[in-house]
Design a protein around this nucleic acid. Structure first.
Lengths: 254, 254
DNA sequence: GCTCATTTCAAACGGGCGTTTGAAACGGCG
DNA sequence: CGCCGTTTCAAACGCCCGTTTGAAATGAGC
């Protein structure tokens, strides 16, 4: 009866309790909470937030319907839990990798500042590592992430914004140093475009499958896709900035 | 009683009927069908497909709930009607503009093939014209479009895919001619990235407002944003393709 | 073996959903 | 006017939703 209203109690107690790993006693992998998170990750990715019901999730996870509300409080909090589980470590890895690159470059005076390619690889390699690791969600989570970027629900936007704040600030600063001849504001916009192309690509929007006459084995391999995306983005980041006179070239001719 | 089952009847008859423009006799602009489309366009953009109810739409449009099903058949068909009304003319404009550029360039032998910038402007200018025209949906529709790209609902993906097929084929061919030294498959992927960055940008995902320290007047002005996006994309399209040896530069270093 | 906090469970609650219905209102036309 | 196809309307249908409830099961510690 005392489960709601003190939502974190189950979590805290399971931490304080002695570490009993209990092998795998349930039919599926993991305990109830993990099974819910795993099922929710896949179903949110496939159908979106609104179209995925708690009944669908708990049925797929083979747990009771009420377990979702018991462990996570609400559907929104479950959605956020799905993200924090993966996104927090991912962005920590990205920042750590960028810091490692910068430290190594600072030691070797010639290599500072970092190139755009090097900074992009600090963004991409952790994502690729995750995509290759089925136990960390594989490509499911990256597709979910790409789609969440375009979701209009306010709580999703605010949540992602807060989750990304630190990482974005670090990478904007790095790109600013890599592109000293480009105005800071332009760098900000280009970072925006980079995130857009990246999330759109990771989301795997089959809408535009026809755009790329891909080989079937490629679309299942994020690594090959990102190897195509990275040179594209690096060149865009380094592009000369459009001047006021370019305006006519772009938008005012006959 | 005979309204369902022959969904197009109201449309056909209104065409066959004598042209009575009837000024503006309703309190809001347009007839019932247009008012539903206008309200649906805004609400789908703000909340997405699943989270927008027909009751919300018909209330905002000041029409009876049943009018939505009477005129459009179902919620899905209403959604598609919202898109065809804007997207069909938009993509027709794009293809027509590209054809006009190609015809003009063919007359002037020096200017063939078109530059990437010219091809991109054939994609962007019609979108900008629409964004500036409040009577054609303004920026609302473009944001809706950007978000629909990432929507997982199968009927949305299939619908957009069919709506874009012709335009994409034409532009892929144009980019292929503009970039003869780049493999066709690579061009396809880069067109995919272009569409991603474009739709992500048009969707105006406030999630990443913090990425760009934008001036408030800029975020409301798609024209300025696209002027930043176009040079970025043109440079990416022209980027040297990553070779097998570049692989190590990107993803296998320490 | 009893206690008691934690977790699971079946059932229900209230409400919003897309859609359908049948009657009423409208409007051009013989 | 009376007809009849078209459109509007209030009401309802059946369904699924997120959440809550209170009891049953569980299991470690005294």
């Amino acid at each position: 009866m005392g489960q709601i209203g003190v939502q974190k109690v189950p979590i805290l107690l399971s931490v304080l309790a002695p570490l009993e790993v209990k092998s795998a006693e349930k039919n599926e992998a993991g305990d109830t909470k993990s099974r819910i998170l795993d099922a929710a990750e896949v179903l949110f990715m496939e159908h979106g937030f609104e179209a995925t019901s708690l009944r669908l999730i708990t049925t797929a996870a083979n747990v009771n319907l009420a377990a979702a509300n018991y462990h996570f409080g609400s559907k929104e909090e479950l959605f956020q839990a799905v993200f924090t589980r993966r996104l927090d470590p991912l962005n920590r890895d990205r920042v750590a990798r960028l810091s490692a690159y910068e430290a190594a470059a600072a030691a070797n005076h010639q290599a500072y500042p970092l190139t755009c390619e090097k900074i992009l690889s600090a963004m991409f390699i952790p994502a690729l590592t995750m995509a290759r690791d089925q136990e960390r969600g594989g490509q499911n989570f990256l597709r979910l992430l790409g789609r969440a970027y375009a979701d209009p629900a306010p709580f999703i936007r605010e949540f992602l914004s807060s989750q990304y704040a630190e990482m974005i600030a670090r990478f904007r600063a790095a790109f600013g140093r890599a592109l000293p001849h480009i105005p800071r504001e332009e760098v900000s916009w280009r970072l925006h475009f980079v995130m857009g192309a990246l999330s759109f690509t990771l989301a795997g929007t089959d809408v535009l499958k026809m755009i790329a006459h891909y080989h079937p084995d490629e679309v299942e391999n994020d690594e090959l896709i990102l190897k195509r995306l990275a040179p594209f983005l690096a060149a865009g980041l380094r592009a000369p900035v459009g001047s006021a006179t370019d305006e006519h070239q772009w938008f005012n001719e006959a």
